[in-house]
Design a protein around this nucleic acid. Sequence first.
DNA 1: CCTGCATTTGGAAAATGGCTACGTATCGGG
DNA 2: CCCGATACGTAGCCATTTTCCAAATGCAGG
Lengths: 193, 193
Amino acid sequence: MAELSIDRRTRKDAQHNRTQILDVARQAFSSDGVEVSMDAIARQSGLGSATLYRHFPNKDALLAALLDEHYEDMLQKKTVIEAEESDAGRALERWIDALGDWMLVYDGLSEPLRAAWSRSNSPLKPTCQNVIDATDIFLRAAQGAGLAQPALSGRHIFLGALAVAWAGGTGLEDHGTRAVLRDMFKNGWGIAS
Amino acid sequence: MAELSIDRRTRKDAQHNRTQILDVARQAFSSDGVEVSMDAIARQSGLGSATLYRHFPNKDALLAALLDEHYEDMLQKKTVIEAEESDAGRALERWIDALGDWMLVYDGLSEPLRAAWSRSNSPLKPTCQNVIDATDIFLRAAQGAGLAQPALSGRHIFLGALAVAWAGGTGLEDHGTRAVLRDMFKNGWGIAS
DNA sequence: CCTGCATTTGGAAAATGGCTACGTATCGGG
DNA sequence: CCCGATACGTAGCCATTTTCCAAATGCAGG
């Protein structure tokens, strides 16, 4: 309903430009990381930068629009995990893995995500909150089964996964390091004596 | 010896300006984080920006000069820990804590540190390497005593500590989160079943 | 004390990036 | 087909890192 009224009032060229921007941005972020300039995206879209900013008031908003697409996938993964995995610990583990992958869809994505959740008015914040909420569900189940540290919250897990994604992200020649970091995130560096 | 020949050839005003820059930068980084502009540092030093760049070819070089001062403290801490702590696990823990503190001396320090170690020619790289080497010593001792995950290397610990510092760094209203993250780094989010 | 010259300096400017003001072009209903 | 609402692009602002070059300045030797 809301969509209809928007669509009806939005000019066709504007609609076309919007999807064009999203397509170009998706491609640009994928190949060059989130650090590509807005100017470059506008140029590749065949538009002036002001037009880009009219559709998305800032870079984070553009990023958020793209991430919301991926959030659909995340919801689906959530359903699949819940259906397939009876063990709450393994379910949480799979969810955290999915989280890590999500945070790596675009190179350098960790930065704006982290910045978003300290800044008060970032368009990325709702998206983060959704993911955190989903994480909380898996986490509490695992905690109930004694398979996750009881003091943690979904926010902590999110931050941890974000930190791992950040550290293991761009320019890490050694691919195995990523796996090691994830394992360290799950099990810690220490061994209880 | 090398210092003498440098000192002899370096003009007094240049020497003075150099220490002046370092003093101002130390203060500026401390109070405003590493994101302060080079221009601001130059201005507060009563110098033109070009002068600043003559002394330190880029921001990382300036940062590295300051961090090297702190590295002295780290070496001292290392000695103290080695002297006081007979348990290798606790020694490693204390070292990692020191590592975490070191990475927080300036706000936003994690960023350049991480960038440094993927970029090939960063002035910060040698400093990082020194810290990693020291970490390796503590780590191997702990591994030998069965108190740390055997698959890890000093580099992994360094990256992990960096990730924790990054995630728990700037703009984290909740101070307890930092402690939780450190604990999660040591023990993981999971509980072995 | 003076003087010549290498060294050092400062201000201006280039390159890049986020973002905006404003006049113009275009869409689409009547 | 026309006109107002809507969307557009140019040009530009501000901030940041870094570089260029002419002018100033310290210092060694006379």
